[in-house]
Amino acid sequence: MKTIECKDIHFSYKAGFLRHYRVLKGLSFDVDQRGIYGFLGINGSGKTTTIKLLNNFIKKDSGTLTIFGFDAQDIKARAYIGYMPENPSFYVYLNAKEFLTFISRLKGVHKPEIKERIDILIKLVGLERHADMPISKYSRGMSQRLGLAQALIGDPELLILDEPMANLDPIGRRVFREIFFKLKERGKTLFFSTHIIPDVEMICDKVGILMDGRIAKEGSIDELLSSHIEYIECVIKGKEAGLFAERHKAHTLSVTMQTDTAIIRFTDKKFVDTILKDIVGSTVKLSSLEEHTQSLEDIFVHEAGRA
């Protein structure tokens, strides 16, 4: 069973009495169990709208959206979710412990376990020294840490995280990354919305690039990168390296000579076999052969330009 199944979702916001602003235009994607899914998109592409649909804050116009097989509007789906909003707001008259106790009770955590679990979570996100301080005194980074702690209450199977690392300092980012990896190891699913590409590259197993209300590209990081080969670079060495490069010039993108070294660049993968066979029958030696792919950022910018 998929953790999230999203099929042909359409959603529009009302803009005035008769006008509608279409945000999602046939959004479809699946999130497998266990692993981290990066939901990447520019501002206004529909990331937060999708997250609101998953949490049943808004209702879709059409399409199917399920969480562990339950319709996203079904209260049973909520039992599986831990949600962390982009800029979490809390009851400022409470402290972190009081707030987490309140959320634990709403989540239905067994009463005798609440205190122990809260202590573990507070330690996990690094809020031990501030746990009794009123939330009104919290910095943005501290609020972000509390936001993650409250999402982890009840040990949910699916974590929906909206820009979770946006307000964190480098230490906080590392703490969060380590928590995410630990959760993944424990078999949890993380649905991670962001527009910070290095975070996605470092953390996510699978990425969906959302553009203009639809998934423009989807796959694992390796799949996405390997499908966007910029060129293949072959470095050969030997006295006849120049002649060798000259022989194959017709199939290359460029040839660069440096004394006894030739750097040959080409785009056609089939040409790799030809060049390797030719090297075997000649006096030149193969120094390196590597694919140069576009970065995730290049792919993202390319897709954004197409949308």
């Binding site: 039992a79 979710i81 909003p85 707001s89 959320i103 409250q150």
Partner: peptide, 14 residues
């Protein structure tokens, strides 16, 4: 207005 409701309604609560 403060969006604290999001942290409540994302739980199993009607």
């Amino acid at each position: 207005d403060l969006k604290t409701i999001q942290l409540i309604l994302s739980r199993p609560i009607h």
